[in-house]
Computed example of a mutant assay.
Amino acid sequence: MVITPFIAGCLGALIGLLIALVANVVVLPAVLRAQKEGFVLGRKTALAAMSQEKVARLTRFTYRVPMPVMFAFVGWFAGLTAFGGN
């Protein structure tokens, strides 16, 4: 049946989006705090040439746009595999 793989993929994508949402709510503040402490302590990274605010904006963007898209995409295929759609 054609609808079963679609439902399985949608369920996997939904789970991926929920994981990305939890990462935005729980993990992102901790990451931003660690970055701020790293700038205060003078840690050097590959992004050291950027200002603290630019790095924080880039991190927020990454957590809010590409990460949910990637998690939904991976979740779609995981749903197909795990829930028997394929």
Rank of each mutant, 00 (worst) to 15 (best):
1 M>W: 00
2 V>E: 06
2 V>D: 05
2 V>I: 02
3 I>E: 09
5 P>L: 07
7 I>Q: 14
7 I>G: 11
9 G>I: 04
11 L>K: 09
11 L>S: 15
12 G>N: 13
12 G>W: 03
12 G>T: 09
13 A>M: 08
13 A>R: 02
15 I>H: 12
15 I>L: 15
17 L>D: 04
18 L>D: 10
18 L>T: 06
20 A>Y: 05
22 V>H: 03
23 A>R: 03
27 V>K: 07
29 P>V: 11
29 P>G: 13
30 A>L: 15
31 V>R: 03
32 L>N: 10
35 Q>P: 06
37 E>H: 08
37 E>D: 15
39 F>E: 13
41 L>C: 07
41 L>Y: 02
42 G>S: 07
44 K>N: 01
45 T>D: 08
47 L>F: 00
48 A>L: 02
48 A>T: 07
52 Q>S: 04
53 E>D: 09
54 K>M: 13
57 R>Q: 09
57 R>P: 00
57 R>L: 06
58 L>P: 00
58 L>M: 04
58 L>C: 01
59 T>Q: 06
60 R>G: 02
60 R>A: 05
60 R>Y: 00
63 Y>C: 12
64 R>G: 08
68 P>G: 11
68 P>M: 12
69 V>F: 03
70 M>G: 12
70 M>E: 11
71 F>N: 13
72 A>Y: 01
74 V>H: 03
75 G>D: 11
76 W>A: 14
76 W>G: 11
76 W>E: 13
76 W>M: 14
76 W>H: 08
78 A>L: 08
79 G>D: 11
81 T>L: 14
82 A>C: 11
82 A>D: 10
83 F>R: 12
83 F>L: 15
83 F>T: 10
85 G>I: 07
86 N>E: 14
